[in-house]
Design a protein around this nucleic acid. Structure first.
Lengths: 352, 352
DNA sequence: CTGAAAGCGCTTACAG
DNA sequence: CTGAAAGCGCTTACAG
């Protein structure tokens, strides 16, 4: 333990400057841009810093440099495990660029939106990553008017004037529907997400496009309402089980609903995929562990986060963002697993 | 949306002052100590603040006021559910006093200790709550030399010169042992925590005191080593099952080990408490859900956190802490539930 | 009750 | 490559 560390008052940059026999400007440079210093000078400063354990006062640094090196990540619901991988990708990109980050968990509350607007407005962050599909606002004050760089990730925000990184939801949904069609299914069902949600809209559009292209009439499709929850899957399954003529394949707008549906119909004694093929969307970890394993479209979660954070770093550091980068759309591979199989009746016969 | 909000450059206190026709000092007072202002003046400032949505620059405020209004809570392992209730109590006290808090999760890593020391040293927090039983240090620099107020909670730190809030571990353990003795048990076992741990030391001391007072020789006690984990409970149970003469009651130094032990002996076909009474320590939620429900000593988790945070607030605001407050020891009630019962053989007969 | 002014601890053009 | 000096946006004794 050094004498200086015993001092009750924290060290200031001037103390280090005096010890090293240089100006405070030089100490500052040693800490933030060492390449600007002669090796000998740098060494003397570093020695003094190491000896004392000096750490710069963060508030002073932030105030003067007008940069916090912190990013706000706005998520709709941190409890949703879908985001953990996205956050991993974000952390990778950001910490690689020297940025820290903090979570703004929206959780549908008005207070949280205010908190988020206040954090940005009080200058606590250099940029914002929006994973929630909308621009937080409170009392007429919107994040978009605050002049802080933003990037939307996962859920696109139509009309936004900042970069966006999303999955190819439409194309993937189309491919999922084609998968079901190619297995011979013609009596199809679609289990929907919340009607206003962009992901739901994109996925439904892709699903419908594929059917139309295959000559399957959309009015033959059974559409179940849903909201991306397990419970919605169960509810849809109840309706499904009660039907006199059942579809032979279900396209669920996400995995959680697909699994709720799957468990319910299996409990009722139906075989999957024998009686009903089920396809989900997202590729959550749990989809691997259900019985049978769920056929799904795997979102590139980590890549989404990584790409979004990289774009934000560019925006924050003033690097020009090309038009191609301004709207990145990552592919979503189909994972054909055990929950989908050939239509046993070719979709032609009726179940009683 | 107001014109001002459209401005790219964030508002400064001088802007509000100009709008309200007052000095920046008055705006500052309106925001931090409104009771010092005449009602009319205050109203004019508030109106300007509300109209613009002005939020003070946090870095400037922290730098000038030399207070961050943030507390660092150091936990050994955030994944341990034991801490969630403690944190709830902490949050209650701190947010009531206007403080925010951030978690420093130690997780046994050297890097984390450095991070924690750096956070404190760079002036990011006004105080520290230590739930980990030791003073974090790194490279010879210790939190105790930094002059920031600290309070130890849950795990006492012997010899520390700051306030401590702990449970009455010794007294509670004594009461737990008396409970077993009063049920007629004389052949006892003790499942220990990590040997250096203060909680283990206190609980073992209380257990031993009770036996000695009852005239039970300590050498008749079977001591199983442990480390507070479920696995340690299972391991102890394996040793227990292999013994030719089995104890009739087990005192586990925490619930997690008690439950590991309980599940293992039940799987082996023994009856609890018929063949072996089991008593735990902590009162974790899971202890309610095992079969049979676990007799345990319930730590006042939320109260521990609340008391610790209140003491820290006093220390941070310069309120004198009385001698009685400097070392608070909260009672730990015994919850006699289904896992303990009368010694079937009175502890006198031998099992073959 | 209110204002003028100093200053918190840094960073960064601007010179040299 | 290095230093002197200005200034980031607040708060707070100090006066009045």
């Amino acid at each position: 333990v050094d004498d200086f560390a015993k001092d009750r008052r924290p060290l200031r940059i001037a103390d280090i400057a005096a010890m090293a026999g240089v100006s405070t400007a030089t100490v500052s440079r040693a800490l933030t841009s060492p390449e600007k210093l002669r090796a000998g000078t740098l060494a003397r400063v570093n020695e003094a810093v190491a000896r004392t354990g000096y750490t710069p006062n963060l508030a002073a640094r932030v105030l003067r440099a007008r940069r916090t090196m912190v990013v706000l990540v706005v998520v709709p619901d941190i409890a949703n495990p879908f985001f953990s991988d996205v956050l991993r990708g974000i952390d990778e990109s950001l910490s690689g660029a020297g940025y820290g980050w903090l979570i703004g968990n929206l959780g549908n509350s008005r207070e949280k939106a205010q908190e988020i607007v206040d954090i940005v407005q009080s200058g606590q962050v250099d940029g914002v990553l929006l994973l929630n599909g909308s621009i937080p606002e409170y009392d007429g004050r919107s994040l978009s008017s605050l002049g802080v760089p933003m990037v939307a990730v996962c859920e696109a925000i139509p009309g936004a004037d900042f970069p966006q990184v999303e999955a190819q939801n439409l194309e993937a949904a189309r491919e999922g529907a084609v998968h079901l069609l190619s297995l011979g299914h013609r009596r199809l069902a679609y289990l929907a997400g919340p009607s206003g949600n962009i992901l739901e809209q994109q996925r439904r559009a892709g699903f419908c496009e594929a059917l139309v292209a295959a000559g399957v009439a959309l009015r033959s499709v059974r559409f179940y309402p849903g909201d991306f929850t397990f419970a919605a899957g169960r509810a849809a399954a109840t309706g499904f089980l009660a039907a006199t003529v059942r579809p032979t394949a279900l396209f669920a707008a996400n995995d959680e609903m697909a699994i709720g549906f799957l468990k319910t119909v299996r409990t009722a004694g139906l075989a999957v995929p024998g009686d009903i093929s089920i396809l989900g969307f997202d590729g959550i970890a749990f989809a691997d562990f259900v019985e049978p394993t769920l056929t799904t479209l795997r979102q590139p979660r980590q890549a989404l986060g990584q790409a979004g954070a990289s774009l934000l770093v560019k925006a924050m550091t003033g690097v020009p963002v090309t038009a191609a980068e301004a709207h990145i759309r990552l592919p979503v591979p189909l994972l054909a697993r055990a929950s989908t199989g050939p239509a046993s009746d070719g979709g032609q016969h009726r179940i009683r």
